[in-house]
Design a binder for these strands. Structure first.
Length: 470
RNA sequence: GGCGGGUUGGCGGAGAGGUUACGUACCGGAUUGCAAAUCCGUGUAGACCGGUUCGAUUCCGGUACCCGCCUCCA
């Protein structure tokens, strides 16, 4: 079974065939690096990481190029830097901007690594591609698709007949909506900025139109073209980017004669406890907030994979708890029966590949894991957990080693407990036994009394130090 | 106003025109000094109104409600 993907451009599920199977190319809009990534930012990262893993599996790890940019020129970044300068920092604005983007990229990497997301093959920064943007803008002007006015360069939307096709909007309808800012230098209300002037307090680059900085949309067009060529396979991003960002990318690139992306994939939005996440509602939080609260990255990933990327997803604390329970069960099976050396030699389960190949049906893939768990297939379970990016081999090895290391100690404690129980039964007085059992329980170890004796089962946050004297 | 998504059992959440989703919770049983955990098992569905069909939760049409985008938020 080949890969099928829902293409936003055609609104249909289509067979995916790469332009060049030896180099499958995907571009995903990355973050504007002005602050910590919030939980919603993480959804496309996990979605497209999963697709990346599937493509690498099908076409070979060396035959996929995944590009995700960093937008490091942006008014919010400028604002942060200017605020620091106003607060008394004497360094030049450029240094403050650089510092801000550097630290934000570092945070982003750390947070997304925690979610098990592989680093893309290329992570271009917009500021490293200003020359390509200027060249593209110049080409658009030469072709009659853009014009300069008062230091701005604007894209002439009416020059591109297909404008609005991706998002299913007509230019006339949008103008009727009248929520478009009409700057005096625009020929048409829908025209958007390719280049804008920078005064001395803002970062800027020399250009044929004076010192200035690029508009947001041209960045992705220029970087995708430079790194992936005039035509490539997949362009991804959040649904909120479909309009105007992706629509504008298409217009710019198409008017430069680029074929641009053949497949467009959009993930639906994430909500929190049934509502849109926003600072005013108090349900706004970052990935780092969750990690710091003790919600592990693999739990966040499990929750994400539970809902198809094309559907709105609700983040709730309850889902996180449930995901953690399931992972705990998986780990126990692997801890008890897994052989990770053996597991590494296995191929991912065909049912998992089939599920992902069907427009990234991650939920179905998780159901396969559930079945493997139910069938005590510890090695296959480990292999597929790794394939889906839920656990790395390193993490699994550590967890299994800890589990097995603790097993010996747990057996010793179980022997003590069993002795106490024999005494209790003989004397028909269970007070001492219950007290000891309680101690073990508070160390986050489940006590299971069966006819074959006593088994102790460690919880995820077991604390053996509390039982050091036993 | 324009465009799009959704509505499934207590909760989360899929697929499939007719056969058990699955997980979790609840209930019953086994087990236990009592529990917990574990194992086994039962039950609980598909917003509403029409249509197509031998048969629809699954296809088509309509209604209601919820949500998102149209504002350089993924």
């Amino acid at each position: 079974m080949g890969i099928r993907l829902h293409n936003s451009a055609t609104r249909a599920k289509e067979d995916f065939a790469p332009i060049d199977p030896l180099n499958v190319r995907m571009y995903v809009c990355g973050p504007t690096v002005y602050d910590r990534a919030h939980i919603g930012n993480a959804r496309p990262v996990v979605v497209f990481d999963t697709l990346y893993r599937l493509l690498r599996h099908v076409y070979g790890p060396d035959h996929v190029t995944y590009v995700r940019n960093f937008t490091d020129v942006d008014d919010k970044i400028n604002a942060t830097a200017q605020a620091r300068k106003a607060a008394g920092d004497a360094r030049p604005l450029e240094a403050l901007i650089r510092e801000r983007t550097e630290e934000t990229i570092g945070w982003y990497h750390a947070d997304m690594d925690a979610l098990g997301a592989l680093r893309p093959d290329v992570e271009p920064r917009a500021t490293d591609y200003i020359g390509q943007m200027v060249a593209m803008i110049a080409g658009l002007i030469a072709g009659g698709h853009a014009y300069e006015k008062e230091g701005h360069v604007l894209f002439r939307v009416r020059s591109y007949a297909e404008y609005g096709r991706l998002s299913g909007r007509s230019v006339d309808d949008m103008i009727a909506g009248a929520r478009v800012e009409v700057a005096p230098f625009k020929e048409d209300p829908m025209d958007f900025v390719l280049w804008k002037p920078s005064d001395a307090d803002l970062p800027g680059w020399v250009s044929p139109w004076g010192r200035g900085r690029p508009g947001w949309h041209i960045e992705c067009s220029a970087m995708a073209h430079e790194l992936l060529g005039a035509e490539f396979d997949i362009h991804g991003g959040g649904l909120d980017l479909q309009f105007p960002h992706h629509e504008n990318e298409i217009a710019q690139s198409a008017c430069c004669g680029h074929g641009f992306a053949r497949f467009w994939l959009h993930n639906e939005m994430l909500q929190v406890e049934g509502k849109k996440m926003s600072k005013s509602l108090g349900n706004f939080f970052t990935v780092r907030d969750l990690l710091d609260q003790g919600v592990p990255g693999e739990v966040i990933r499990m929750v994400f994979l539970g809902t198809h990327y094309g559907k709105p997803m609700d983040w709730t604390a309850e889902k996180a708890v449930e995901a953690e329970m399931r992972l705990h069960g998986f780990l126990e099976l692997i801890g008890l029966y897994g052989d990770l050396q053996q597991a590494k030699t296995l191929a991912p389960e065909p049912a998992v590949i089939d599920a992902l190949s069907d427009d990234l049906n991650t939920h179905a893939a998780l159901m396969v894991l559930q079945k493997l768990n139910g069938a005590d297939q510890a090695n296959a379970l480990a292999r597929n957990l790794e394939f889906l990016g839920i656990y790395s081999w390193e993490t699994l090895e550590t967890k299994v080693a800890n589990f097995r290391g603790s097993q010996i100690r747990l057996q010793e404690i179980a022997a003590v407990l069993l002795q106490v129980r024999e005494v209790a039964k003989a004397q028909k007085n269970f007070t001492a036994f219950d007290a000891l059992k309680q101690r073990i329980t508070t160390a986050n170890i489940a006590v299971m009394i069966g006819k074959d004796g006593i088994t102790l089962r460690p919880e995820i946050d077991m604390d053996l130090t509390k039982l050091a004297d036993l």
